[in-house]
Design a protein around this nucleic acid. Structure first.
Length: 842
RNA sequence: GCGGGUGUGGCGGAAUUGGCAGACGCGCAGGACUUAGGAUCCUGUGGGUUACCGCCCGUGAGGGUUCAAAUCCCUCCGCCCGCACCA
């Protein structure tokens, strides 16, 4: 038979299928029939499949396509597996770009945002994603941000939202403050400008009150990548130690010093205060040191954070003229001020133990301060006079009075206990995590629902008065105050308490607040009584599978965990963690670099879909790399995906055209040729592999590879078996089960072929195929024979032979005899149905 | 510096429990069909060698454990990511 002839169907040669027609046809039908809409169905197991919702920047990029295609495959697969699947989509719609567009082009942020949403919704629908669009949310919609404000008030009433004057991160380009998490290597996470410091009255959320639980519950997140858990652990930065109270010589002033190395307290030869430590001014006031120290502190204040906290930089410091008293031994030691000590961490004061801390060592060397060994190395080699670097390791205590001889670990416990018993200090836990600064001096965000009254002070807006609406007409030009501040009608209000005149808070909330609870809103998106209905949330939460970029490892994922815990404590929800399983997908690259306008290497989803169709785009983006890895976009690679779909189309339409195939399907147990048996085995092996790859480990790439292989097998069968010897019933079964497996990946083409095979119901409402264990069994196995570790022969034997039988068969093989020659057999290992390994000696 | 990841053909990648390295795809080469092919179908494709039966080498480098190592252990190198004076 000549290649290609079995594709002639009804006289027509079907070369390629028309994806444009097929895809839009089914998208319309799915929308009309609402097949992806879900309601709570207690008798069915639920599955909440969620992808991080996008910022509506205007156009979908390939990273979105990858993220949402993965989620869609999981959602469709779980549906076919019998789950009631919640798979929603929405918009993280507040944020700076909308405001910048308004300033630049005179479009209102709302208009710009809603236009972008409309375009991106169109693009998502074009990809054939199975969302329940009835549940769509947009965080900039008053029906949504009303509840964001409600949740702020919940925090406020629980003592978790507070306002304080603080030194904060300021982005001069965005003209707003930033939370610590949003400063990446000294730069603004969004625009990469260098962040400066400024002092402002700002709103904070007390996330530090949850530091321990956020850390502790990371243990529950077994379905998260270890990397993300470690990043959160590092960010929270828990450390245990002792806070000592040091006295100031010649006064009754005291100051606290935090250390994790209380065992080295006898080695303190100086103490260092942060330049902005309040004690600095007190101890230098009226002394000859005052002016110089103040000048030094000012220099530090002006230094950009990134420079000041760089570990490589030489440490600068200055003596204050004052002396501190070591609470443990009464020693008097000089008080210095240095740039390497940060007011934000611990107590803003550090005890200098140069012998056992590298930073202190460098500082002591630079300024000629004494070095005193108090932990001797096990080999007794440490000598203060000859040390080249600090010794932070294990050893035993020396020069420490009654504590001499203790190990580091025992010394830590003993000193801590002694300090507590004698009122010299107390055990303390410190965190690197800071409270979450949430005020933003911008317009396009949810207004903070707070009113300032001269008589009543800070007054929360009552729940019944929510939402505090954004005024429509304001000047968006950023300045030192929020744009809302320039809007009189907004600012001027009456006090909810006393009815007198009052002013509204003019800052808006960090958009990360809006995205910290959206997954709850999806559960009951139209609720007008509460942010979400308890019954709906109890049914759907937690999210069973969350998919998104690793860039949110600390930001969004930490904030959301915090919100979930607060909601739980408030009795609004039952779960303590929002996302049971997390998949962090890798980035999409082009020519080895991230796609960006400036590099000019952007591949636009719309262009690709127009040229190859949504199904081919989906298949390629899943096939090109495993989900967590970076994916290199390839223009020829997508051709391959397109070829595979067309190849599938042709073979399935050919099978559909086989005369009497449907009738023949009832004769499944009739005669089988060897080729039939092998094809059937191949079908079941493919079902097993695809199921396992999708369900167990999200390896969509190998699942697609397995289906490609199976399609190749179908072609080989057609090539090998003459038309009159083919088994139409088996071929039909192969075609149908292949389509079912491919349906989550290529939903349009499979739906079309499914209907062409005569089915009335959507393929997406079918049950996932099950493989037949019996069909997998072979009558014979190929056994590999190794001699001294090298493969020397393969023999075909009856399946299931015992080790002994295998050995006998192996040793009687001609090639084996030849290779063995007259060498002696030292050992034989046989693994049934796999291999025989023979070790020899001369 | 600390923590994590990773290194496999010309390229993307596979090998799930230590058991035939390179599945699948791209690219390339040859053939078939064809007025034509950038469509489609078939064949080949890690390197070396060769009477195309094989044989030798081969998973960043070196060493080790084992009948057997991409996989486990040790030393080193490259790249990527996170944290980075955190007391």
């Amino acid at each position: 038979m000549k290649g290609g002839s079995f594709f002639v169907i009804g006289g027509l040669f079907m070369d390629r299928y028309d994806f444009d027609v097929v895809e839009s046809k089914w998208q319309e039908r799915w929308e009309k029939s609402g097949i992806y809409q879900v309601v709570e169905t207690p008798e069915k197991p639920k599955f909440y499949c969620l992808e991080m919702f996008p910022y509506p920047s205007g156009d979908l990029h390939m990273g979105h396509v990858r993220n949402y295609t993965m989620g869609d495959v999981v959602a469709r697969f779980k549906r076919m597996k019998g789950f009631n699947v919640l798979h929603p989509m929405g918009w993280d719609a507040f944020g700076m770009p909308a405001e910048n567009a308004a300033i630049k082009r005179g479009i209102h942020p709302a208009e710009w945002t809603w236009n972008n949403i409309a375009n991106m919704r169109r693009q998502l629908k074009r990809l054939g994603l199975s969302y329940d669009w009835d549940r769509e949310v947009a965080t900039c919609d008053p029906r949504y941000y009303r509840w964001t404000q409600w949740l702020f008030l919940l925090m406020y009433h629980r003592g978790l939202a507070y306002k304080k004057r603080a030194i904060v991160n300021w982005c001069p380009s965005c003209k707003t403050v930033l939370a610590n998490e949003q400063v990446i290597e000294g730069e603004c996470w969004r625009c990469h400008s260098t962040v400066t410091k400024t002092e402002l009255d700002q709103w904070f959320l007390r996330i530090t009150a949850y530091a321990d639980r956020l850390l502790e519950d990371l243990k529950l997140l077994k379905g998260w990548p270890e990397q993300v858990r470690i990043m959160q652990e590092n960010w929270i930065g828990r450390s245990e130690g002792v806070e000592f109270l040091f006295g100031v010589k010649g006064s009754d002033k005291k100051f606290a010093v935090f250390t994790t190395r209380q065992d080295t307290i006898f080695g303190v030869t100086f103490v260092v205060l942060a330049p902005d430590h309040p004690l600095v001014k007190e101890i230098t006031a009226g002394t000859p040191y005052e002016a110089k120290v103040a000048e030094f502190a000012e220099k530090c204040r002006l230094m950009p954070e990134i420079v000041r906290t760089s570990a490589e930089r030489d440490k600068d410091g200055i003596f204050t003229g004052a002396y501190a008293v070591n609470p443990m031994n009464g020693e008097e030691i000089p008080i210095w001020v240095a740039d390497y000590v940060l007011m934000e961490y611990g107590t803003g004061a550090v005890m200098g133990v140069p012998a056992h801390d590298q930073r202190d060592f460098e500082f002591a060397r630079k300024y000629g301060l004494p070095i005193k060994v108090v932990i001797q190395a096990p080999d007794g080699s440490l000598d203060a006079g000859t040390m080249k670097e600090a010794y932070p390791g294990e050893g035993y205590m020396v020069n420490s009075g009654q504590f001499d001889g203790l190990s580091v670990e025992n010394g830590k416990a003993a000193i801590a206990q002694y300090a507590e018993e004698h009122g010299l200090g107390s055990r303390k836990v410190n965190y690197r995590l800071r409270d979450w600064l949430i005020s933003r001096q911008r317009y396009w965000g949810a207004p903070i629902p707070i009113v300032y009254c001269d008589k009543c002070g800070v007054v929360p807006v009552p729940e019944r008065s929510l939402p505090v609406l954004l005024p429509e007409t304001v000047s968006f030009e950023p300045g030192q105050i929020s744009p809302l501040g320039s809007c009189k009608q907004f600012v001027e209000t009456t006090c909810p308490k006393c009815g007198g005149s009052a002013r509204r808070e003019t800052d808006t909330m960090d958009t990360f607040i809006c995205s910290s609870w959206y997954y709850y809103r999806y559960c009951s998106p139209h609720d007008t009584e509460l942010p979400f209905s308890r019954a709906a949330v109890d049914y759907w939460m937690a999210v069973d599978q969350y998919i998104g970029g690793i860039e949110h490892a600390v930001l969004h994922l930490l904030y959301s965990r915090f919100f979930t815990k607060v909601l739980h404590d408030a009795g609004l929800t039952k779960e303590v963690e929002p996302f049971t399983n997390l998949l962090t997908q890798g980035m999409v690259l082009k020519d080895g670099a991230v796609m960006s306008k400036s590099k000019g290497n952007i591949v636009a989803p719309d262009d690709i879909i127009s040229r190859y169709g949504a199904d081919a785009t989906r298949v390629f983006i899943l096939f090109a790399a495993p989900p967590e890895k970076e994916l290199e976009w390839s223009d020829t690679g997508i051709e391959g995906a397109s070829r595979f779909l067309n190849r599938t189309w042709r073979i399935v339409t050919a099978i559909a055209g086989l005369k009497g195939s449907r009738e023949a399907a009832f004769e499944r147990n009739g005669q089988r040729s060897a080729e039939d048996t092998e094809l059937n085995r191949s079908l079941n092996a493919t079902i097993q592999k695809v199921t396992n790859d999708v369900e167990g480990r999200f390896n969509f790439n190998t699942a697609i590879a397995a289906m490609m292989e199976f399609v190749n097998q179908l072609y080989a069968y057609m090539e090998k078996v003459p038309a009159d010897k083919r088994n139409p019933g088996l071929l039909l079964e192969c075609a149908e089960k292949l389509l079912l497996m491919l349906a989550p990946f290529a939903p349009h083409m499979t739906e079309e072929l499914w209907s062409q095979l005569g089915h009335e119901d959507s393929i997406h409402l079918q049950t996932w195929p099950v493989f037949d264990q019996k069909a997998l069994q072979r009558e014979t196995s190929i056994i590999v024979i190794q001699i001294d570790g090298k493969v020397r022969d393969r023999i075909e034997v009856q399946a299931g032979l015992s080790g002994e039988e295998l050995e006998r068969a192996a040793l009687s093989a001609e090639r084996v005899k030849k290779w063995l020659g007259n060498r002696q057999i030292a050992r034989i290992i046989s693994i049934p149905d796999k291999l025989v390994s023979i070790a020899t000696r001369p």
